[in-house]
Nucleic acid binder design. Structure first.
Length: 586
RNA sequence: GCGCCCGUAGCUCAAUCGGAUAGAGCAUCGGCCUUCUAAGCCGACGGUUGCAGGUUCGAGUCCUGCCGGGCGCGCCA
């Protein structure tokens, strides 16, 4: 529709150029947008305002000239010139009703678009370290990423959902060691648990299942484990040195293959929990990509060689550095430490190169906002390798700040004091949680009040939308109870009977859904869907209260049912994008 | 100190590429259930868009400088 109007205006501009009203070199970006209020018609264009300066003409005069030059159209009923020179377009009502028919005909495909043109997109999101259960902070990344993927797929992109598993770092060693220490406790050893170890109950659970599998096979004397280990933080020492020494000791006492078994059990148990948790949250992945596989396949070394050949690496203080400052980063970065170990950054370079090599047209990373400082160096690395850094789009998601009423909760994975995503899902329900998370634009801090989300009250906006859906379902049940029949074809033939203001508002809202999906996908902003659905639900409730649907006049009744069923379809489709259920009854 | 993000109604947030009179929910106050679910509807109240300049036909939106908040600034991940 928008496109049609744009074409009409382009024709008018061309005509004015031909007759000399506009200079021959006129070039204008024709912007057509939905009018913000009814008085301004259906669509508005600011073309005359934009042409005023280059043409050195009064914008209102230009607007009149443009309108006079507009070709006739069977969808535009009339135009108006308003304000400083806006051209407002009023469409024929019949054009608007077409959306109702399309929504019913196309069903769950209604709203699918093609701005993606089948381009392949890789979206990486959540990617929390598998060192413990997901907490409510990760929940936002999951809800946002999941909705974004659905939205992009709906807009015609081919979306690949990926979780990057950090299974290669020091934190994983600390987890494995924590599990082993708890296992020693299970096996009857007395020991002092390190400050920096992972303290959550899940560590004890894994330790118990480790004990069930291995019995005393991995048991070592506490004295041997802790002998000559430097003092812990709370003992006046350095907690980092303490834990690192314990990790080294665990590897030494257990041997490579035993240590590996502890490590793998810890990793697989936590990963399985995360996978299950996300699935329960309605988030599924196409691929779980292992960081370890990059090191083991030699991809990291290859990436470093690539940088080396391009002349962007140098040695200093025994370490290998990437000269990222040449590509806009604020300081150079270490890729290989003095002790020979590669850094997380090095494997991340390899990972991003790998993503591009897999042939995706663009890649999107969803990161917590605390990683924002990381963006320039990853882009720098891609540029240094001769890749187009613009193919990487990093979306930063601010953390959720958790409240219980007015009390702000502090969270820390290490201390074991956190609210897990699983707890949140159990208390609040996935629907409310997912909706709550994506309601706000991601760069905005999110205040997440558990009491409010748990309250099951009207304060929860998701119920408002779900209720609109359930109400329509209920009307259809009533129809059956009253022994009435719904004739869709008859209704569709008589949509023009729907002339009440509430009906026109609803028709209009349904017709905006396609554009909404396009715009939200292009901007990569799922929250637009949430806001749209709120407005759509409002139109449904308002209509419901103002008019009876199941009237005696069968034809009017059929037309009204067509309208609300179309609305129900759009609510369903929109909620599906957000990963929220559309209940038949509430 | 430097960098990035944010600042909109009492509270939580919207506002399409810079567009017309800045909108919702909650809270407060007043109405609406004999009618398809009141998790609903209608109305009222509520604003110097943090402050000061600038750019232009037009600024919540762009630029500069302040103020306030968050995050980042490791041979951690």
């Amino acid at each position: 529709m928008k496109e049609q109007i744009r074409k009409l205006l382009q024709t008018a501009v061309n005509r004015l150029v031909e007759d000399g009203t506009l200079p021959p070199d006129t070039h204008v970006d024709i912007q057509v947008e939905r009018a913000r209020d009814r008085g301004h018609g259906d669509f508005a264009a600011n073309t005359a305002l934009m042409l005023a300066r280059p043409a050195r003409r009064n914008p209102r005069e230009l607007a009149e000239a443009l309108v006079a030059a507009l070709p006739s159209s069977d969808t535009v009923q009339r135009t108006e010139i308003a304000g400083p020179g806006f051209i407002n377009f009023f469409l024929r009502a019949e054009a608007a009703y077409a959306a109702v028919r399309e929504a019913l005909d196309q069903g769950e495909a209604y709203g699918r678009g093609d701005i993606g043109r089948g381009k392949r997109l890789l979206v990486e999101f959540v990617s929390a370290n598998p060192t413990g259960p997901l907490h409510v902070g990760h929940g936002r990344g999951a809800a946002f990423g999941g909705a974004l993927c659905n939205l992009l797929a709906e807009a015609g992109y081919q979306v690949h959902r990926e979780y990057y598993v950090n299974d290669a770092g020091r934190q994983m060693d600390i987890l494995a060691t924590s599990v082993w220490l708890r296992y020693l406790e299970v096996s009857g050893q007395q020991l002092r648990f390190p400050d920096n170890g992972y303290r959550g109950d899940y560590v004890r659970h894994i330790a118990r299942s480790l004990y069930e599998r291995e019995h005393d096979a991995l048991r070592r004397q506490a004295a041997a484990v802790f002998g000559d280990i430097p003092a812990d933080g709370s003992q006046g020492g350095d907690k980092e040195a303490h834990i690192d020494a314990l990790v080294a000791r665990a590897k030494e006492l257990l041997g490579r293959s035993n240590y590996r078994r502890v490590f793998d059990l810890a990793l697989n148990t936590v990963l399985e929990d995360i996978r299950d948790d996300l699935a329960g949250f309605g988030v599924e992945y196409d691929e779980w990509f292992s960081e370890l596989s990059l090191t083991e396949s030699g991809a990291v070394e290859l990436a470093l060689e690539r940088l080396q050949r391009a002349g962007h690496l140098f040695e200093r203080d025994g370490a290998t550095w990437f000269r990222s400052t040449e590509f806009g980063d604020e300081k150079d970065r270490v890729v290989r430490r003095e002790n020979g170990a590669i850094t997380y950054f090095a494997s991340d370079i390899a990972y991003h190169l790998n993503k591009l090599e897999r042939g995706f047209d663009a890649i999107i990373d969803v990161w917590g906002a605390d990683h924002h400082g990381y963006v320039p160096r990853v882009k720098a690395a891609l540029s240094a390798c001769g890749e187009d850094a613009a193919r990487l789009d990093v979306r930063l998601v601010q953390f959720a700040i958790l409240y219980r009423g007015s009390e702000r909760l502090q969270m820390s994975t290490r201390s074991g004091q956190f609210v897990t995503l699983r707890e949140l899902r159990e208390e609040v329900g996935s629907d409310a949680a997912r909706f709550f998370y994506v309601m706000r634009k991601p760069e905005q801090h999110l205040d997440f009040d558990l009491e409010l989300a748990k309250s099951q009250s009207a304060d929860n906006p998701v119920y408002y939308i779900q209720y609109a859906h359930a109400r329509i379902c209920s009307v259809m049940r009533q129809l059956g109870d009253k022994g009435l029949r719904y004739d869709a074809a008859n209704g569709l033939e008589h949509l023009t009977m729907l002339e009440e203001r509430h009906e026109l508002d609803l028709v209009n809202a349904i017709g905006q859904y396609r554009e909404l999906v396009e715009n939200a996908a292009a901007a990569r902003e799922p929250h637009q869907v949430a806001h749209y659905l709120r407005d759509l639900a409002n139109a449904v409730h308002t209509y419901y209260n103002a008019h009876q649907f199941l009237v005696d006049d069968a034809t009017l009744r059929d037309a009204r049912l067509c309208l609300v069923l179309a609305a129900r379809q759009v609510i369903r489709n929109g909620l599906r994008l957000l990963g929220v259920r559309a209940p038949e009854a509430m």
